[in-house]
C-alpha cells in the first residue's frame, strides 16, 4: 500500500449531501473534507442534527452521496459492503436469529470458502471477545441492551472489515455498561488497529477513545469547525487519564466549542 493511501485511508473529498424536502432541497453538508490515516480512531462530535449520521451512513454506503467522493483504502466506495463494519445506536440484530446466528449470517457471507468448523470458530472467537461466551444461543429479546450491542459489535468485527463506522453505539446504554463497552472498543481497537470513525455526544468518551476529535459546526452546510489532536498516551486507563495534564485542557476545548455552537444556534433561531 502506498504511503499516500496509508495517509489517506479514509478520504472524504468535497462531500455534499442534499435532502430533497417538501420545502425544497435541504443542504446538510457542503464541501465537507476529512482525511483519516490508517489505524486512526476519529471521533465526530457536534450538535444534534448537524449531519454526523449523514456522514457516517454515506461512508457506509447506505446513504447516497449528492456530490464529492468517499474513498476507503484508495478506492472510491460504491454502495455498502462488508469491508466497512457498521454499528448503530440500536443494535439492529435480526430478532429471529440467535446471537450466534446473527454473527454467523455475516461470517458465512464474508468467508464463503471457509469450512464449517472455521466459520464456527470465527463466530465463537468474536462472541467470546465481546464477553458473550455464555450467551451464544440466546435470542435478541432475551438479551439486555448492552448485550445486544455487544453482539452488534461482534458482528461488525467478525467481518474483518477494513474500517469501523460507529454511530453513537453506546448512546442508549446506562453509564456502567457504557464504560464496559468503551473498554471493549478500546481493546478491540488496540488489537486490530482498525481505522475507525465514531460519532458520539459524549466528550469524555471521545477523549478516552480517540486519536483525533473532529468538531462539526451546526448545520445546515455543516463543516469541520476544529480538530483536536488527542495525544494522550495509549493504552489509556480511565483513572490515570484524569491525571494527564492536558486532559482538562482538551475537555475544556471541546466543551467550549460545543457551547459556542449552542449559542450560535440560539442566535440564528432568534
Amino acid at each position: 500500500m502506498s504511503n499516500y493511501v496509508k495517509e489517506h485511508y479514509l478520504d472524504l473529498v468535497n462531500l455534499s449531501k442534499v435532502y430533497p424536502t417538501k420545502k425544497g432541497p435541504f443542504v446538510v453538508l457542503e464541501n465537507f473534507n476529512l482525511t483519516v490515516p490508517e489505524g486512526e480512531f476519529v471521533c465526530l462530535i457536534g450538535h444534534s442534527g448537524c449531519g454526523k449520521s449523514t456522514i457516517l451512513t454515506m461512508v457506509a454506503g447506505l446513504n447516497s452521496i449528492s456530490n464529492g467522493s468517499v474513498s476507503v483504502a484508495g478506492h472510491e466506495i460504491d454502495g455498502p459492503g462488508p469491508d466497512r463494519g457498521v454499528v448503530f445506536q440500536s443494535p439492529s440484530l435480526l430478532p429471529w436469529l440467535s446471537a450466534y446466528d446473527n454473527v454467523m449470517l455475516g461470517v458465512s457471507k464474508v468467508y464463503p470458502h471457509a469450512s464449517k468448523k472455521e466459520r464456527e470458530d470465527i463466530v465463537k472467537h468474536y462472541l467470546n471477545a465481546v464477553g458473550l461466551g455464555g450467551a451464544f444461543h440466546k435470542m435478541p429479546k432475551e438479551l439486555s441492551q448492552g448485550m445486544r450491542q455487544r453482539v452488534g459489535i461482534a458482528r461488525a468485527f467478525a467481518l474483518k472489515p477494513k474500517m469501523m463506522l460507529l454511530d453513537e453505539p453506546l448512546g442508549m446504554l446506562d453509564a456502567l455498561t457504557k464504560h464496559e463497552l468503551q473498554d471493549l472498543i478500546a481493546k478491540l481497537h488496540a488489537e486490530h488497529k482498525l481505522t475507525t470513525l465514531m460519532v458520539t455526544h459524549d466528550v469524555d468518551e471521545a477523549l478516552y477513545l480517540s486519536d483525533r476529535v473532529v468538531m462539526m459546526t451546526n448545520g445546515p452546510k455543516a463543516k469541520v469547525g476544529q480538530i483536536l489532536l488527542n495525544d494522550m498516551p495509549r493504552p489509556r486507563e480511565r483513572v490515570s487519564l484524569l491525571e494527564y495534564p492536558n486532559y482538562y485542557k482538551y475537555r475544556e476545548q471541546l466543551i467550549t466549542f460545543l457551547e459556542e455552537q449552542e449559542l450560535k444556534k440560539k442566535h440564528t433561531a432568534a
Partner: peptide, 22 residues
C-alpha cells in the same frame, strides 16, 4: 425494518438471501 434491510445491504446479500433470510 430499514435496519434489517441495511444489514442485508452491508452484507451484500443476494436477492434470494435477502428474501428468505431477512
Amino acid at each position: 425494518d430499514q435496519d434489517h434491510l441495511n444489514v442485508a445491504q452491508v452484507l451484500k446479500l443476494n436477492w434470494f438471501d435477502r428474501i428468505f433470510k431477512i
